[in-house]
């Protein structure tokens, strides 16, 4: 959970990391390859996130990891002014943002090129990848200035 063996550009950090096993590992392994992929039910074609073993719509156990367009919009967000975790003290203020992807799934992430206080609802964004350590690449997002 709170692993201490990750590094960012040689600098030690103990920020929380995902537990790399099962479908969580599969999701982040794709991120390592700079691919944002979500599960899509092989039977009813419903996209889903977070990863699950069964499709809650149709009960199928079969899925594919389909590649997302990486484009989406800001659904909601908060601006953390006072950190609740010691490893995020230096990041304050920062904004965990909920992104709604074009495929309909939502995930929490960060915006790299937007002041936390300038985030707006529906702001168009696209994915980029931040290799925070050798083992972990996080999908983050940047504001799209010319949404098409």
């Amino acid at each position: 959970m709170t692993s201490t063996d990750t590094t960012t550009a040689g600098k030690e950090t103990s920020k929380p990391t995902p537990q790399m096993e099962g479908t969580t590992k599969e999701f982040y392994d794709f991120c390592q390859k700079k691919e944002l992929r979500f599960q899509c039910c092989s039977n009813c074609k419903q996209w889903r996130h977070v990863p699950r073993l069964m499709c809650a719509e149709c009960g199928s156990w079969e899925w594919q990891w389909l590649r997302s367009s990486g484009r989406g919009k800001v659904f909601t967000w908060t601006v953390v002014e006072r950190p609740m975790h010691p490893d995020f003290v230096e990041d304050v203020p920062y904004a965990p943002v909920v992104i709604e992807l074009e495929e309909g799934v939502r995930m929490v992430s960060w915006l790299s090129n937007c002041d936390p206080h300038e985030i707006t609802r529906g702001m168009p964004v696209e994915v980029e990848f931040d290799a925070v350590s050798e083992q972990l690449t996080l999908p983050k997002f940047k504001r799209r200035n010319n949404p098409l």
Binding site: K15, P16, P18, T78, V80, V108
Partner: peptide, 23 residues
């Protein structure tokens, strides 16, 4: 939360519930 919230600094109830208040 461990796998998909905490790595992004979403670590405490005050943060995720504020998402819904803002909505």
């Amino acid at each position: 939360a461990r796998d998909f919230y905490f790595p992004f600094g979403l670590t405490a109830p005050v943060q995720w519930f504020s998402f819904i208040a803002r909505l």
